[in-house]
Write a protein that binds this DNA or RNA. Sequence first.
DNA 1: AATGAACTTACCCAGCGGTAAATTACCCTA
DNA 2: TAGGGTAATTTACCGCTGGGTAAGTTCATT
Lengths: 212, 212
Amino acid sequence: MTMLSSRAGTKGVPRADRERQVLAAATEEFGRRGFEATTMAAIATRVGVTKPLLHQYFGSKQDLYLACLDPVGDRLLDAIRNAMAGHGTGAPPTPLRVLHALFDALDGRREAWFVLYDPSLPPGSDAAHRAAHYRDAIDDLAATGAAELLRTAGSGDPLDADALKYAWRGLCTALIRWWINHPDQTPEAMTRRCARLAAASHAILAADNGHT
Amino acid sequence: MTMLSSRAGTKGVPRADRERQVLAAATEEFGRRGFEATTMAAIATRVGVTKPLLHQYFGSKQDLYLACLDPVGDRLLDAIRNAMAGHGTGAPPTPLRVLHALFDALDGRREAWFVLYDPSLPPGSDAAHRAAHYRDAIDDLAATGAAELLRTAGSGDPLDADALKYAWRGLCTALIRWWINHPDQTPEAMTRRCARLAAASHAILAADNGHT
DNA sequence: AATGAACTTACCCAGCGGTAAATTACCCTA
DNA sequence: TAGGGTAATTTACCGCTGGGTAAGTTCATT
């Protein structure tokens, strides 16, 4: 007598495909709303599937997050490393090259940036540690850039370098957030825009301040 | 038989005092962890009190958030307005004056900035609208600054101005976050540091990029 | 003693992470 | 061509946490 409308059973989608769908949806959701605010059911709904399937395929919510984190972290790290390595004469300055690399790496998955920089990860968790690991690796690259920049400017204060690192990261984050709100912009258009903004800022910063 | 250890009853703290304590604790907690991750019980515990008291004094969680938001928003808005108004010759450039004003306004309540810029507010809620209202007011000020800056640089693209607004906000946020991690730094020290960083960045940005 | 202000205990309810068990579809073999 | 195994998926549930409330308990004042 249990013949009625049980929509259970396979839908013919092989596991590998489903996993790709889930990973894409989860990455976007985690990036948009953050780990804590993201619910398993929401991800499942996006894919047209129910909660238990996610758990069966990926384990816990944290496991799913980690599965999203690794590709994103590796991709970004690679992009930045390459951008900082290739500095030929006549090429744009390093910060702009890094921005271009970021926009390229994030094209089609712009929210992925915020998977890495998610403040809502449970403190002390595996997820938080792994995310911090990736962030630290990126920060190390930024730190060499910052130190180099400050050395040429004659400031030896290590705190200055640290603050500059933070500021740079904040800049990138803000630009990416703006990009998410303007979906039609290509990575190249973004890079050119950043170059214009840098040039414009250059003008105002030329005015010196009057106190030590 | 209900004689045992009932720690209920007044502790002699008048309502106005308690409300101030709660507001201070809530502002810090909301700023640190964000609206969603903050729990009523946590705030109550910080004050040495229990959950129902907060509800009795402030109503819902959102109401308490709003009670925190208003003073913070007003204070910041005032600070920025004043900083942008007073530009005498020989004074530091506007961005630096704004930063100094922010550091001053946030001294002793540095996390308050993140009460305004909390991404975890329930979308569509009163709280989200009011916070957006304050952010928009601040953004309007930033927009005039950005437009002025870009006009002198010869770029008429309105999207550039919008992006610059975002970038500036991101910079401020990043610097404040760094400041929170370095509690010993005074507002003046922060301002000087920002001036140094600006000067250093100025150096690298002087290098022009090779493509249109 | 009585009134009211300050405060707590004990509870309800919804939402979410997670699991067990059942259900359906597909494919391979005899 | 029936039937059995297995992969894909659901329904129904548990337990905890967190917002919110009702009702009671203590203290101070008049």
